[in-house]
Design a protein around this nucleic acid. Structure first.
Lengths: 206, 206
DNA sequence: GTCTATAGGAAGATAGAC
DNA sequence: GTCTATCTTCCTATAGAC
């Protein structure tokens, strides 16, 4: 095997770990399988990382940054509000459909992090960054379009992030039953309505 | 240890497994820890279950049925639509706050099932039953209140189930930051508006 | 039915030659 | 820096006495 600087080896092992975990699931991915996936021996692994936990930390931060950039890229501002919402969700959804294993893996790693002492912060960081991505989008839209929101931006952002998350997980579990395009249409219109006019705190009678 | 019929032993071990998994996480829960939690020897475990997988299957079906009954009980029809939505979400949320580990565990088991060959059906069954619970609620409301929905009931039900799921996971990760009650208010009003008036497929301009 | 004892293997991590 | 070989620990599952 060719010699290689430490930092590059770490990247190589991190990417191999992501492939292996996406394919086999987090609990079944061992240090041995990661080393094999990267094409190096087990000792090289322990030369680059003090422990398996250290590698998983690298995997989580790498994949979180990647997922966030996927979301940010999909949900960028466009000409009209309607178009922003529709095209944004479409772009995000195309990515989910193209890389379901990668999205599945982010859920698994979230739970791994919540269970591992000292790793909870990594799970929180992931979800905070999703919220930040939505916050940024809303602020950009607001400055460009003079939207009036009755709900504070952080609340709306966190709500949108949670909704996207739930829809993604639902799709990963139940798959693309025929109903799915209808759900996307519903949620698109729903969100457009929410962002535009917003929702009064209470409301009664049809 | 007292003798006990097989079926009862199986229940005992299943409940011990649920406690152990909620406390330690699914991957770290071993047959030994389950047997210890139940207060029986390891051999008793293998007398009642052919394998660890057989027990996990029992755990998943038991916990799914339990979770669904939680949802159904929370989301039962009440006097007015507004009250149904608000009280229903409040009841569900109280349960999440009181038993976060149990809800966390259902997410972990979903992913375990999706990864384990032959277990995918169990994950789907779980999410289908959530959708069914919402379908049932909507149908009851519709017959009692003459609602008109422009979106088919299964689409709306699946959407509501996914949204609830995403909000729950978001809470489990980020915890009860002060924003949370605001989010619940928003979602309550949001859902009430969605169910009542429903959402047109497209809509433009403020 | 319930126990102790153990088989048989795979995991994380390390030692030391090259 | 990279390798092979090995230590130690923990797992699932089984065998066989009581």
């Amino acid at each position: 095997m060719a010699r290689m600087p430490s930092a590059q080896r770490r990247r190589q092992l991190t990417e191999a770990a992501i492939r292996a975990m996406a394919r086999d699931g987090v609990p079944k991915t061992t240090t041995r399988s990661i080393a094999a996936e990267a094409g190096v021996s087990l000792s090289v692994f322990h030369y680059c990382f003090d422990s398996k936990q250290a590698l998983v930390e690298s995997v989580i931060t790498t994949l979180t940054d990647h997922s966030v950039s996927v979301v940010k890229d999909a949900l960028r501002p466009r000409a009209t509000l309607e178009e922003t919402v529709r095209a944004g969700f479409q772009a995000y959804w195309d990515h989910v459909r193209a890389h379901p294993d990668e999205h599945m893996l982010t859920y698994e790693l979230t739970q791994y992090a919540l269970r591992e002492p000292g790793f909870e912060q990594l799970a929180r960081r992931q979800y905070e960054m999703y919220g930040d991505a939505y916050t940024e989008l809303i602020e950009q839209l607001r400055s460009g379009m003079d939207l009036r929101l009755r709900v504070p931006v952080p609340v709306l952002a966190r709500y949108l992030a949670a909704m996207t998350d739930g829809l993604t997980l639902n799709y990963l579990v139940l798959g693309d039953a025929t109903a799915w395009t209808d759900i996307l249409d519903t949620v698109t219109a729903h969100i457009a309505g929410l962002v535009m006019a917003d929702v009064p705190a209470t409301r009664s009678g049809p």
